[in-house]
């Protein structure tokens, strides 16, 4: 359980900076750049928090990163360059949207694979059904009779 106390220590260390997510003095004058900064911030994970993006986190490090993101944008970086800048220092861990690379192929392809597997199974089910349907095909006359019987049965019930 030693890491619990450690986590507590880290949180304690981060405490003096508690603020309130994005602060007014961080906001850029250029609304276009600011909007980009907000979007980028939503894709970056706050490293001291648990599953929070830096945009909504009030930790000190998150604020620093928000300022950094804005600084890079003002300096003319593209969104991808800004994200790469942060990734180079904190690793893939800070990307809430994991990059598409060999280690995450499985993650990104999983939905499609799951869907295809499911669809394949569904098609097999439908095929089998059709086979059995053909085998058990009632003539139209039979079907009409069955429907009639069932209808009267239902009438009796209600």
């Amino acid at each position: 359980m030693k890491w619990i106390s450690l986590a507590a220590a880290i949180m304690l260390a981060a405490l003096p900076f508690t603020a309130h997510a994005v602060e007014p003095d961080e906001i850029l004058d250029d609304p276009g750049l600011e909007a980009r900064a907000r979007e980028i911030s939503k894709d970056l994970r706050c490293v001291v928090c648990q599953n929070q993006d830096i945009d909504s986190s009030n930790a000190g490090v998150a604020r620093d990163l928000r300022l950094l993101v804005r600084e890079r944008l003002v300096a003319g970086d593209t969104d991808a360059e800004v994200i790469e800048f942060v990734r180079a220092r904190y690793g893939d861990f800070v990307l809430l949207k994991p990059p598409f690379k060999p280690g995450t192929y499985a993650l990104w392809l999983a939905p499609a694979v799951l869907f295809l597997f499911g669809a394949g199974t569904a098609i097999v089910v439908l095929r089998n059904n059709r086979k059995r349907l053909v085998a058990a095909k009632l003539s139209d006359e039979d079907e009409r009779m069955v429907a009639e019987i069932l209808a009267t049965e239902k009438g009796d019930k209600s």
């Binding site: 993006d53 690793g91 800070v94 949207k97 995450t104 993650l107």
Partner: peptide
């Protein structure tokens, strides 16, 4: 669960968040 899988298999940490 992917972060757990990834950590177990390669030791790398990834985050899977709302954008994914």
């Amino acid at each position: 669960l992917y972060p757990l899988f990834m950590e177990a298999l390669s030791g790398d940490k990834v985050s899977v968040g709302s954008p994914f």
